[in-house]
Design a protein around this nucleic acid. Structure first.
Lengths: 150, 150
DNA sequence: TTCTTAACCTAGTAAGTTGATAGGAAAATA
DNA sequence: TATTTTCCTATCAACTTACTAGGTTAAGAA
C-alpha cells in the first residue's frame, strides 16, 4: 500500500466534508462515524490539515471543521503532501525536480523515476476535492445508459 | 519515499546487468560494488527476482546472474511487483482492478485511486529494462543540440 | 457561572517494516 | 581438494504505523 491510512482517511474525510457538509462546521465525531474511522486518530489527521491551511477549525459547541478554501481550489496532491510528506519515489526524483546525488552520471534509473513522478504529479495536481465529489454525484443520478467501459 | 530500497536497488542492479553485462553471468559482488550496495542485502533482493523468473542464477565459480529473458521483455512493473509486492494505492484500487469493500457505494475516493493506479500501471508496464539503458546510452552520446525541454 | 461541546495537545504503545549483518550449506569449476 | 558463488536462515536496531488515553483550552448554551 503506497499511501498510508493518514492519506486515505484524510482524503476521504475531506471529500465527506464537501459531500455532506454545508457552510456549517462539521465536528470530527460526525465524519469519523460516517466514514468508520477512529475519532481520536482523525484528530491527528486534521491537525495536519489545519497546519497546512486546508481546513479551518472552529472550537466550542456548534464548532467543527470547514474547508479553508472552496473545494475546487484544493487539490488532492496538496492534501496528500500535507499528510504523507513529499511523495518522492526515489531520493533523486522528487515531484518533477532533480535532487543531486553522487552518482547522477552513472545512475541508470533517474529518468525513469522522474518520468513516473511527473505523471503522478499530473494527476494529483489536476484533481480537486470538488472533482471527487462531482464524480460520485454524477454516478448517483443513475448509471450512464451507455456501455460501462470505466 | 514510496518505493523502498528493495525496489530501487533491484531496478538499478538489473539495469546495471543490462548495461555492463554480456552473455556471461555477473556475480553479485561486482554489481554490489559498482552500485554501492551491500552485497548480502542484494542477495535477498536477487532471491526474489529469481523466484519471480526475472533472473537465472548460475552457481559456482564463474557463476553469477543473467536475465531470464531479453531486457526488452522485462518491464519495470514486473520487477517492482516482485520486490515491493502489489503496488496498490488503496485496498480497493489495485492496479486497474476493483476489489470489493463494504463501502463501495458510499466511497468518495475509489475512482480517484483507480484512475491514478491506472496511470502508474501504464508507465510501469510500458517501460522495459532495455528502455532504461537505451535512454542513458542516448544521453551518453552527447546531449541533444535541440532545446532541452525535458 | 456552570455545563457541554469540541478542538487541541502530548505521551505512550503494540505490531509491523526496513535495511541491513552473520554464519553457514550446497553446487559448480579449477 | 580449494575456491568461488549462490542459497538459506536467523537475528537485530531503528523506524513507522495506527492507534489509545488523558488531559487542556476555547466557545456557546443553560
Amino acid at each position: 500500500m503506497l499511501i498510508s491510512t493518514k492519506g486515505r482517511y484524510g482524503l476521504r474525510s475531506l471529500a465527506d466534508l464537501v459531500f455532506y457538509g454545508q457552510k456549517k462546521p462539521v465536528p470530527l465525531r460526525v465524519i469519523a462515524e460516517r466514514q468508520g474511522i477512529s475519532e481520536s486518530y482523525l484528530e491527528q489527521v486534521f491537525a495536519l490539515l489545519r497546519k497546512a491551511g486546508i481546513v479551518n477549525a472552529i472550537r466550542g459547541s456548534y464548532g467543527g471543521y470547514v474547508l479553508a478554501r472552496p473545494a475546487h481550489q484544493i487539490t488532492v496532491g496538496e492534501v496528500l503532501k500535507a499528510l504523507e510528506g513529499p511523495l518522492t519515489l526515489a531520493s533523486c526524483a522528487s515531484g518533477g525536480t532533480t535532487t543531486e546525488c553522487d552518482k547522477m552520471d552513472t545512475c541508470l534509473t533517474i529518468s525513469f523515476w522522474q518520468e513516473l513522478s511527473a505523471k503522478i504529479d499530473e494527476v494529483l495536481s489536476s484533481t480537486t476535492l470538488q472533482d471527487l465529489v462531482d464524480k460520485v454525484q454524477a454516478a448517483r443520478k443513475g448509471p450512464d445508459p451507455r456501455k460501462d467501459k470505466n
